[in-house]
Computed example of a mutant assay.
Amino acid sequence: MSATILIPARYASTRYPGKPLVELTGPDGPKTLIQRSWEVAKAVAGVDAVHVVTDDTRIRDAAEGFGASVIMTSSACRNGTERCAEAVAVAGIESDIVVNLQGDAPLTPVWFLEALIDAMCSWPEVEAATPVLRCDEATLSNFLEDRKNGLVGGTTAVFGRQMQALYFSKEVIPYTGSRGAEGPVPVFHHVGVYAYRPAALAAYLDWPVGPLESLEGLEQLRFLENGAAMRCVEVEARGRVFWELNNPVDVARIEAALEEMS
């Protein structure tokens, strides 16, 4: 099956305006968030094409400056999935699988995306899929500390026995206050990557925004609210730290992780 990776990026982030162009310093020097995300996508094996998708000329110019292909979309797109759906239509993309690597996840390991694409190839009946990563104690502590301080950190996911997504939230779910210290952490970090069938992307644009998507601000809930199947794909960290850039405080966390990866 053919696969295309799209990297939606917008300048007017409510929580962190200009986020895609924030510089992150690593062992290879300073690079923008969008460039680091693009470099992850370019390293994925077996992908036909990678495109940055945006409505902002500043992001377009920066992306083309480091060699990325760019698809321009309208400013009416309300989230990355809508932007990907419009890009597929505008550019006439005909891949069997469309992958949405959100532009704020530069620590996403390549094998997360490869596992997601492999899963979609193995599950022809699944309309959309997304990776989940079991939290370690440090990540769970970061999540709880962010919520305690009124910050929206990472998203968590719960799923059924067949890995079907049940819910996603910016709160830490399930509740962990009564758990003992023994055993694995029962919280899964939702990795901000999606894979879709083109038909599911096209249908997404026709569905209304539901109350859960509106309250949580999570685009993937539109699939669940409209009865579409989304499968979770468990991935392994292999010693790597995964953290998205959601707030300015995350810059230091990501830069520290980049240093550790060198």
Rank of each mutant, 00 (worst) to 15 (best):
S178A: 15
P8N: 10
A256V: 03
Y11W: 13
I5Y: 07
K19Q: 14
P20N: 11
F168Q: 00
I254V: 14
E234I: 10
E216F: 00
N247V: 12
P30F: 03
Y204I: 04
S75T: 10
V209S: 05
T155C: 02
P106F: 06
N246I: 02
A68I: 01
I173N: 01
L6K: 04
G177Y: 13
A237V: 07
V44Y: 10
L107M: 04
V185D: 07
Y167C: 07
V50E: 06
K170Q: 12
V191W: 08
L140F: 14
A228F: 01
R197H: 08
S169Y: 01
I5P: 03
A85E: 14
M120E: 04
L21E: 03
C77T: 11
A76N: 06
D206Y: 00
L218C: 03
E86Q: 15
F223S: 12
V99W: 09
T108Q: 13
G160F: 04
R197K: 15
V251S: 01
Q164F: 01
L221D: 02
G177E: 15
C77K: 09
I7R: 01
V126I: 15
S13D: 11
D104L: 02
P174G: 06
G26I: 04
T54E: 07
M72D: 09
S69F: 03
A87R: 04
A3I: 09
A9D: 04
R222E: 02
N226R: 10
